[in-house]
Design a binder for these strands. Structure first.
Lengths: 183, 183
DNA sequence: GTCTATAACGAGATAGAC
DNA sequence: GTCTATCTCGTTATAGAC
């Protein structure tokens, strides 16, 4: 992928994380990158194309981060705290989870974008279930309903980003894991 | 308040809950109500005025519902399950929490709208803390950090609405309470 | 690959008739 | 209170020069 296209994707991601799908424009992206809005159409014909590619890259980067956590952290609790860190980091910079933001706008998203967002949540759910199941197997955790627990962890992190940024507090989301998985 | 203004508020609320602040227009509202978009400006001069009033009415209606739950439900768990029902009901109709949706768009909201949204979350947090505290006092619940637990409950319900609607499942959110407050 | 220029459209908002 | 008509602006998108 050309470097310019990468710069456009990066600017688009940042804008969606702060302003949402309906709240950002090609002009915003162009101003960020330092080109004209018409030039963006050369790389991404439509807004749907651009946002689909932003979401796809975000999803893949996130999947890679999940692999890194599994590889470097050994206990379930360590892994989940590192996972919460993936949400705290953008929040610190005033950004939402890209897919959380897009999911809230599901009703106005082009179908190809919604498909990427859905895939993101399926992958998060699967990683959380796998991580929780490993913790249960080793006896580190007890959980009567692993899928439901994974859903609640994911929902609480996504919700905490929105509420915390709105109220301007609590950029460290490790308390979410601490409350849902008490020692 | 004139009946027409009430109809406009109701249509505006529904549109924001599904499409977000940036995703709905005066024309959408006008089409829903059956008038021209110009007529809306007679009741609400600007979009900020309309959305501020929508948020204020939503916040007050919600506060009234909280009072009703406290008055009719006796145990903390019953109250929290009824509270989750306040989120499940709009989700069933494909709508988000109005203030959750607006909070995700905090960066592009007019200041007067953001103020109403903030107030909403302060009120939710206070009611949840009060309800949890009552449960701790009677010995029904144990909680080492009531404010953090209240934050997580609120965040999980808001997040679950977004993820559930995006993925088209789980409109009953009582599992959130069940997972966060295990028996 | 990026530009200028512009088309085509929808947005928020206003003026003034009724 | 609602209308028609219009203004002004920002939006996505395209055409064609460089």
């Amino acid at each position: 992928m050309p470097q310019r296209a990468q710069e456009i994707l990066r600017a688009g991601q940042q804008l969606i994380q702060t302003r949402g799908y309906a709240g950002f424009s090609f002009r915003d992206v162009a101003a960020e990158v330092g080109i004209r809005s018409a030039s963006i159409h050369y790389h991404f014909p439509t807004k749907a194309d651009l946002v689909r590619d932003v979401a796809r890259q975000y999803r893949r980067d996130f999947a890679q981060a999940l692999g890194g956590i599994t590889a470097t952290q050994t206990t379930a609790r360590e892994r989940l705290l590192a996972y919460a860190g993936l949400y705290s980091a953008p929040l610190e910079a005033g950004r939402h989870c890209l897919c959380g933001m897009l999911a809230s706008e599901a009703a106005i998203l082009p179908a190809e974008v919604r498909a990427e967002v859905d895939r993101f949540f399926v992958e998060q759910q699967a990683w959380l279930e796998h991580t929780l199941h490993a913790g249960v197997t080793t006896g580190e955790l007890t959980a009567s309903d692993v899928p439901a627990l994974a859903s609640v962890l994911l929902a609480a992190l996504e919700g905490a980003m929105i509420i915390s940024r709105s109220r301007g507090e609590d950029t460290d989301l490790s308390y979410v894991v601490a409350q849902i998985l008490p020692t």
